[in-house]
């Protein structure tokens, strides 16, 4: 038996290169975001800089229309999450609780949609949105994000629903509760944690989506955060890197914190059968 201390040292040494590479971009982000503009391009390149320029964040906020993009991202992500859950909860409940004709077919269909990435369909989706006049409309993203996340949310919710014993509802029926009442008073309260976790993952997925937002949204005012930041980099002669990094910090850090806190639920979900 190796002692836990010895194991700790060996493991951290093994993980060290990866940890460094993972943390490198975060360091780059912070160090650039607070660096004076004049010190972006120095030779030889170096990590250190003369002073913290917190004003970079303020300047960036104004110049890049960060607030607008933030609101757009929030609107799209929240709406898409709500929509996806509204459609997924009944479907996951049906999959978890009922036998019905075509159930296997429906599940395979869901698996297929999970595999279809937006990029392969992006041209068709674009033509669809043109036909409905939804190009340059954030709602086109709401609908598509909801649809592309649904397979995941149904999958995740179903695997959690399966862990809520069916007998609880049956007992409620025997106690005289209607289907609706037992759903509202017995099932849903127990399913809340699962729904919250699923909602947050859907939110993060929508928050981070790039290809569809890049395609559907044409005007600066409607950019979501990833597209806004990309637009600061793409096809520009002069890139204001300190602004770009300041924006990246603001756009990613809150999400990264929430995600770090939740990742163990994802592992549990996988163990419960999201993979099975």
């Amino acid at each position: 038996m190796i002692s836990k201390l010895k194991k700790t040292v060996i493991y951290w040494l093994l993980l060290a290169p990866l940890v460094i590479v993972i943390l490198f971009p975060f360091a780059v982000m912070f160090v650039t975001a607070v660096r004076p503009r004049e010190e972006l391009f120095v030779y030889p390149p170096r990590w250190t800089f003369s002073q913290f320029r917190w004003d970079n964040f303020v300047d960036m906020w104004v110049k890049t229309n960060f607030g607008g993009a933030l609101l757009n991202s929030l609107y799209v992500s929240v709406s898409a999450t709500v929509l996806a859950l509204l459609f997924s909860i009944p479907a996951a409940y049906a999959l978890s609780r009922y036998r019905f004709p075509g159930k296997g077919l429906y599940r395979n269909f869901l698996l297929m949609t999970q595999m279809m990435s937006p990029i392969v369909l992006v041209l068709g989706l674009f033509r669809l949105m043109v036909a409905f006049g939804l190009v340059n409309n954030l709602n086109s993203l709401v609908i598509t994000y909801a649809a592309f996340n649904m397979a995941f949310t149904i999958w995740m919710l179903q695997s959690y629903f399966n862990t809520i014993p069916r007998e609880l509802e049956e007992a409620a029926w025997m106690d005289g509760a209607s289907h609706y009442f037992s759903l509202v008073k017995i099932f849903l309260p127990l399913a809340v944690p699962a729904m919250v976790v699923t909602a947050i993952f859907t939110f993060i997925n929508s928050w981070n989506e790039f290809v569809l937002a890049l395609t559907m949204i044409r005007s600066n005012d409607d950019f979501t955060l990833p597209v806004m930041i990309f637009s600061q980099v793409a096809g520009r002669y002069q890139i204001e890197w300190h602004h770009v990094m300041a924006a990246t910090v603001l756009a990613t850090v809150p999400v990264a914190i929430v995600f770090s806190w939740l990742q163990r639920y994802l592992i549990r979900g996988m163990a419960l059968g999201a993979v099975k």
Partner: peptide, 9 residues
């Protein structure tokens, strides 16, 4: 019920 099916909440 076999599992008792007590409402946990």
């Amino acid at each position: 019920f076999q599992s008792y099916a007590l409402y946990p909440h």
